[in-house]
């Protein structure tokens, strides 16, 4: 049985992964997620982005629950 996680993406990151919402195989932590995404989308290695888990910015490696809200956020440019 393989579980999956749903990821939403914004701005330039959504352009790179080709969609603003999709599911990926479950990975245990945010660092593993970054590694997985960098392999799948090599262009991501060239851009800055942050991960938000359940609407909070992640600053260190964090565990990913299957039910987590995961978002990939490029540098902010509001205002």
């Amino acid at each position: 049985m393989s579980s999956s996680i749903n990821i939403i993406a914004f701005g330039r990151i959504a352009e790179i992964i080709g969609t603003s919402s999709r599911s990926f195989p479950h990975v245990a932590t945010t660092n593993e997620l970054k590694e997985f995404l960098n392999v799948k989308f090599p262009e991501l290695k060239k851009v800055k982005y942050a991960i938000a888990l359940n609407k909070k910015l992640i600053t260190t490696d964090a565990a990913i629950e299957v039910s987590a809200n995961i978002a990939l956020l490029p540098p902010f440019s509001g205002g």
């Binding site: 914004f10 701005g11 330039r12 938000a52 978002a71 956020l73 490029p74 902010f76 509001g78 205002g79």
Partner: peptide, 14 residues
């Protein structure tokens, strides 16, 4: 608050 909006809100301008 203007500084914080620009730095901390997840908003993107294309």
């Amino acid at each position: 608050v203007v500084e914080r909006i620009k730095n901390e809100l997840p908003v993107w301008g294309k």
